[in-house]
Design a protein around this nucleic acid. Sequence first.
DNA 1: ACCTGAACACCGTTCAAGT
DNA 2: ACCTGAACACCGTTCAAGT
Lengths: 224, 224
Amino acid sequence: MAKATRPSERREEALSRERIVAAAIELLDDEGDNGLTFRGLATRLATGSGALYWHIANKSELLSAAADAVVDRALSELRPARDPREAMRDVALGVYDAIDAHPWVGAQLSRAPWGTAVLRILERVGRQVQALGARGGAQFTAASTLLTYIIGGSIQNAANGRLLDPSVNRADFLDTVSTRWQQLDPNEYPFIRNVVAVQLPTHDDRAEFLAGIDLILAGIATSL
Amino acid sequence: MAKATRPSERREEALSRERIVAAAIELLDDEGDNGLTFRGLATRLATGSGALYWHIANKSELLSAAADAVVDRALSELRPARDPREAMRDVALGVYDAIDAHPWVGAQLSRAPWGTAVLRILERVGRQVQALGARGGAQFTAASTLLTYIIGGSIQNAANGRLLDPSVNRADFLDTVSTRWQQLDPNEYPFIRNVVAVQLPTHDDRAEFLAGIDLILAGIATSL
DNA sequence: ACCTGAACACCGTTCAAGT
DNA sequence: ACCTGAACACCGTTCAAGT
């Protein structure tokens, strides 16, 4: 009657879809978008590359599962908010921060716009739109405008981050870009020169992102 | 004194950066995002793959040049508009339609958020924001909100298109998605079930995109 | 100066063979 | 049932050799 199996020694447990997805997330976080290869993943999991195909169909399914896991976690960590306006900002920032921390998720969301991750974000956004008082077709328009902005802004922010070596600091980078843009042709690029280049060094991406949410919410409010 | 060179017979002219970029655009349009390979491009241009590297540094530069060319053409085709509001809608739709016709451009814009193409779109957007009467920091916020929405919405629309085989028609696809979504758990996805799934079959992506622009413009108007 | 195409160091995916 | 790892059909990029 004694148990035949021992509590796992130092060796790895069996492969499973969950372990593979978790390892894929680690690999993507460590090495970036191009860091995920079946060979690298197999090495991390101390197995052969073919073994992975027993548990997942292909790379696209793996990426999709990894992105879903990140988005699910981010959405489940949202705390109850005081009012719909605050709830909307929390959803937006939750997605923004998740993609900032896992930049590869952004590309995945735009590759799979009908997938579970996007669906869950849209559900959250939509509920707040309803709570704000939108009716009929305006609900759909308001929710999809916010969804587009939230995903678009999160992706663009994450792309910025990926361009910088960890060695260059952000302020120096923005100064360099700002200087370059102030030398653009004043006839061709007046707005970039006089407005964007000037404000670039002191602006806060996350605060600007949130200001955009507020602008859209203000627009929604005018049609209630 | 007679000219030694003949007018080009039937054979190809010499390679050049422009010819390579033009062929790359054709290839991307015909075969999609993954269709661009140096071997395929070399075959189209009747040359060796290594020859391309004499004119362009690498694939990333090639993609970037191709996307710039598409965006430049789209922006240069914009007709003068009656007022800043209409001009803004024209810019937004110009980008939207260009990325709809060349879906691979979307991914490139989010890969190079400080590149020439994005810069030119932002310049156009910014000028209209100024013409609408925004001042100081509000100009920057309004322009970057619109930029984010325009690029994000164009990318998401293009991603939708890529998912469909040309064989399936759009209405059937939307019906299928709508039906599937109406069967989601009513406790977990009330908004998707009751609002999104219901409106999906009859909605018009391009009109919804434009409605989002109007929503943001309404938001901007409240702070003037 | 410009072009050729083989070679190098990778990929994702498949599949016979093992346990 | 699950795992192994060689094999296949690709990639981007380099570079000696040609013109």
